[in-house]
């Protein structure tokens, strides 16, 4: 059984398949839908924050890769997603079209980015500590674990100064490595709850069809339906991503091959780590 995995937002601008005419079509669709052209990442839609442009770039590459695999006759039996990878995953499932996936990426990205006008937020990547240790550090500093990627790979989110303090504490507690990235908003934390009304109104404007390919979500590992998708799209921004649990769930339900559909190979590397512990 083959599972396509849709990764979340890339942390940096990546090379795009700019010579591929099919990618150009996706890029033009993105420009028409959102104003951002991923073939002109440094000059296009400069009013959008870097995070939103990275989210759109990630969605474009995932949509293109999924289309490419489909054209090659390489289908998926199941779909999984991580964070903002949900939008292209929904498109691959047949629940929405590519334009809607890009519109949702853009509109939700812009909405959460407005939080960054009030406060400075950051993400903190911590490698090497256990969840228990990191939970204590996060609580000590008033921030949250936003991504549980493996037993030793986590992403923290919260106000920038608090994330920085937590990273210092993590290093002192024996973390192998730490790094921080500025971001618009503390995605996957309860801090997003202050804008859920606005997010619900955006999501309510779209129609979601029943997925033709089962799509397993990253919170409770349920298979999304047309009825549960709108609620999930808001809830997932307020709750952590549980990738390790999702991967183990998929493996235990018969998935034998995982194909990463998007920028980079972070999910495949997380899977490799999880496999090495089992």
């Amino acid at each position: 059984m083959i599972c396509w995995m849709f990764p979340g937002q890339p942390i940096a601008f990546a090379d795009t398949p700019s010579d591929d005419p099919e990618f150009k079509k996706t890029a033009l669709l993105c420009q028409k839908t959102t104003g951002f052209n991923p073939l002109e990442i440094h000059t296009s839609a400069s009013a959008l924050s870097q995070s939103v442009r990275l989210q759109l770039l990630g969605s474009c590459v995932s949509l293109h890769r999924a289309n490419q695999l489909t054209r090659q006759g390489s289908g998926a039996d199941l779909l999984a997603e991580h964070s903002m990878g949900i939008y292209p995953a929904l498109s691959a499932s047949g629940s929405i079209d590519n334009a809607t996936a890009l519109a949702l990426t853009w509109r939700i990205g812009v909405s959460v980015a407005e939080m960054g006008l009030q406060r400075e937020y950051a993400l903190g990547c911590v490698i090497g500590l256990t969840c228990e240790v990191l939970e204590t550090i996060a609580a000590n500093n008033g921030i949250y674990i936003a991504n549980h990627n493996t037993s030793r790979h986590f992403l923290l989110a919260g106000e920038r100064e608090k994330v920085d303090a937590a990273l210092v504490e993590a290093m002192a507690s024996g973390a192998f490595s730490i790094s921080s990235f500025p971001c618009d908003a503390p995605l996957h934390t309860p801090l997003i709850e202050e804008i859920t009304g606005k997010l619900q109104r955006i999501v309510a404007e779209y129609n979601f069809l029943e997925p033709r390919i089962p799509l397993v979500e990253h919170i409770a590992q349920t298979t999304l339906t047309a009825a549960t998708i709108p609620r999930f799209l808001v809830e997932e921004l307020c709750r952590p991503v549980y990738w390790e649990t999702t991967y183990c769930f998929l493996r235990s339900h018969g998935v034998t091959r995982f194909q990463e559909v998007g920028v980079g190979s972070a999910l495949s590397k997380f899977n490799r780590w999880i496999d090495s512990e089992s």
Binding site: I127, G128, A175, F176, S177, K269, W273
Partner: peptide, 23 residues
């Protein structure tokens, strides 16, 4: 990348008994 680094740390400790304490 840093994900690979921790994987190599574990492998080095397992195969050669050598510890790399931090990044």
């Amino acid at each position: 990348d840093s994900i690979d680094a921790l994987q190599l740390v574990v492998a080095m400790e397992k195969e050669f008994g050598v510890v790399v304490p931090d990044a």
